Simulated scan of single mutants.
Amino acid sequence: MTDLRSPAVDSALDRLARRRASAKMGWFIHAAVYAIVNLGLAALSLSAGRDWHAYPLLGWGLGLAIHGAAVWLIGPGAALRERLVERERAALARRGH
């Protein structure tokens, strides 16, 4: 079976795949730094008999969650976004646009 995709389509798919892979790698690096830094902050906080480490943990955790939502849920090529695009295409096709 031959592949009927044009070089332009292959190039666009390759760019999207590289963009998605870079976004996911960025999130993994962000998550790793978050874990390492917050473990260090927790150790420092608890060694001083305090529990202030929860504040940066929660604040940065919110940022990490938002970053994850942008990468995994609503970024280009994400499953949720693709389902919404397909739903809009179907609605437009039904209306004759």
Results as ranks from 00 to 15, higher is better:
39 L>E: 07
26 G>F: 15
18 R>I: 05
60 W>S: 08
52 W>L: 09
46 L>M: 09
73 L>G: 07
60 W>I: 00
50 R>D: 14
85 V>I: 08
6 S>A: 05
12 A>V: 02
45 S>P: 08
60 W>L: 01
39 L>N: 04
51 D>T: 05
6 S>G: 10
8 A>V: 02
54 A>G: 04
82 E>I: 04
4 L>P: 15
12 A>K: 13
65 A>P: 09
79 A>K: 12
19 R>M: 14
12 A>R: 04
81 R>Y: 13
9 V>N: 01
17 A>G: 07
58 L>W: 14
90 A>V: 02
61 G>H: 01
40 G>Q: 08
66 I>D: 03
33 V>R: 13
17 A>V: 02
44 L>Y: 13
13 L>Y: 04
83 R>K: 11
64 L>H: 02
88 E>P: 12
18 R>N: 04
29 I>M: 11
92 L>N: 09
58 L>A: 06
65 A>H: 08
34 Y>T: 01
51 D>I: 03
7 P>M: 03
3 D>G: 13
67 H>V: 02
1 M>H: 13
23 A>V: 03
56 P>Q: 03
11 S>G: 09
94 R>Q: 15
94 R>G: 12
67 H>A: 05
9 V>S: 01
55 Y>R: 05
24 K>D: 05
3 D>A: 05
37 V>C: 04
94 R>I: 11
46 L>P: 15
53 H>Q: 06
87 R>Q: 11
46 L>Q: 10
40 G>N: 07
89 R>F: 11
48 A>V: 02
50 R>E: 15
7 P>W: 10
54 A>I: 07
11 S>C: 01
92 L>E: 14
13 L>G: 01
11 S>T: 01
81 R>F: 15
37 V>M: 10
91 A>P: 02
13 L>P: 03
28 F>Y: 02
21 A>N: 06
74 I>G: 11
91 A>T: 03
64 L>R: 00
76 P>H: 08
38 N>R: 00
5 R>Q: 04
11 S>N: 04
51 D>F: 15
49 G>S: 10
84 L>C: 08
69 A>P: 14
59 G>S: 09
80 L>H: 15
37 V>P: 06
38 N>A: 05
35 A>N: 04
61 G>V: 01
95 R>W: 15
32 A>C: 14
91 A>I: 03
89 R>K: 11
1 M>I: 09
74 I>L: 06
35 A>K: 01
87 R>N: 15
69 A>T: 10
83 R>N: 08
66 I>F: 12
72 W>G: 00
77 G>M: 09
14 D>R: 01
88 E>K: 06
53 H>F: 14
32 A>N: 08
87 R>G: 13
33 V>T: 12
78 A>L: 12
10 D>M: 03
57 L>R: 00
60 W>T: 00
25 M>N: 14
2 T>V: 04
30 H>T: 02
74 I>V: 11
8 A>G: 06
87 R>F: 08
49 G>P: 11
73 L>E: 03
7 P>D: 12
94 R>F: 12
4 L>W: 15
42 A>F: 15
33 V>F: 09
20 R>V: 02
18 R>L: 08
41 L>H: 07
62 L>R: 07
77 G>T: 00
17 A>K: 04
82 E>A: 06
97 H>T: 05
64 L>K: 00
96 G>T: 00
60 W>G: 00
80 L>R: 13
36 I>N: 06
86 E>C: 02
43 A>D: 08
75 G>P: 02
